[in-house]
C-alpha cells in the first residue's frame, strides 16, 4: 500500500486497511499523550475538535526547537508506548471522529472494539526511529496547551509527508499483537516441552 492522505473523508478507505499493511501518511495530524487524552475527555474541546476530525492522533512526546521567528521544528519524534492510553483511547476516537491512532506496542480490547465501532485503525510507528519520523514532519501548524502541559505533552498540529507506519490493529477486530503473542507462546511451549503455560 502506498500513500494515505489525511484527514480521510471516506470511512470506507479506513475499512479497507488490514493488519499487515504498510502505509505512508501525508497530510495533517495531531500529537497527544497522557495529559492530552485525559483533557480531551474532561469536556468537549471545541477549538481542537476540527484538527482531530478524520485524522490520526500521534502518541508522541517530541523534542521541539523554536526558531527566532517563533515557528517550531520537530527535532526528534518517535512514538511512545500506547497502552497507557487504553482507558481513554476508544472514547477519544469516537467522540472526536478520529480515524486512527499512531503509537507503539499495540493496545487492548477496549481500543480494538472502539476501532471497529467508529471506523479507525491502530498504526504502529517504528519505536526509536526518532530521526526518520521527525524528518517526515514538514510543518508545525499550531500547538494547543503548550503552557499548561509542556512540550512533550502539548497537542501539536503537524503536517507530515510519507510518514511510515504499519497497520497492526484494524477496524475488523484483528490485532497483529495478539497473533504474534499467541504464536510465540506456542513456539515457547514447544521449545521448553511444556503443555500449556
Amino acid at each position: 500500500m502506498a500513500e494515505l492522505k489525511i484527514p480521510v473523508d471516506d470511512e470506507a478507505v479506513i475499512r479497507e486497511l488490514k493488519v499487515g499493511d504498510f502505509v505512508e501518511l501525508t497530510g495533517r495530524m495531531i500529537t497527544g499523550r497522557d495529559a492530552a487524552h485525559k483533557w480531551l475527555l474532561e469536556e468537549p474541546r471545541e477549538d481542537v475538535a476540527p484538527y482531530m476530525k478524520g485524522t490520526m492522533i500521534y502518541q508522541c512526546g517530541p523534542v521541539v526547537r523554536k526558531n527566532p521567528d517563533g515557528s517550531y521544528v520537530f527535532v526528534a519524534a518517535g512514538p511512545t508506548t500506547s497502552i497507557r492510553e487504553e482507558p481513554y483511547e476508544a472514547d477519544v476516537i469516537c467522540q472526536y471522529g478520529l480515524r486512527g491512532v499512531i503509537g507503539k506496542g499495540g493496545m487492548g480490547q477496549k481500543t480494538l472494539d472502539g476501532l471497529g465501532r467508529c471506523g479507525a485503525v491502530y498504526l504502529h510507528a517504528v519505536g526509536g526511529a526518532a530521526q526518520v519520523l521527525a524528518n517526515s514532519v514538514t510543518k508545525v501548524e499550531r500547538v494547543f496547551m503548550l503552557e499548561e502541559f509542556g512540550v512533550p505533552e502539548a497537542l501539536w498540529v503537524i503536517h507530515v509527508e510519507r510518514f511510515p507506519v504499519m497497520v497492526t490493529m484494524d477496524s475488523h477486530g484483528q490485532s497483529l499483537h495478539r497473533v504474534v503473542e499467541a504464536e510465540s507462546r506456542r513456539k515457547l511451549e514447544e521449545l521448553l516441552g511444556l503443555e500449556t503455560l
Binding site: A76, A129, A130, Q131
Partner: peptide, 19 residues
C-alpha cells in the same frame, strides 16, 4: 526504517532515539 534512522542520526549528529 531503523537503518535509515541510524544513518540520519549520524549525518545530523542528532540522537538516534529521543529516549
Amino acid at each position: 526504517t531503523i537503518l535509515d534512522n541510524v544513518d540520519l542520526a549520524r549525518q545530523k549528529v542528532a540522537p538516534i532515539c529521543q529516549d
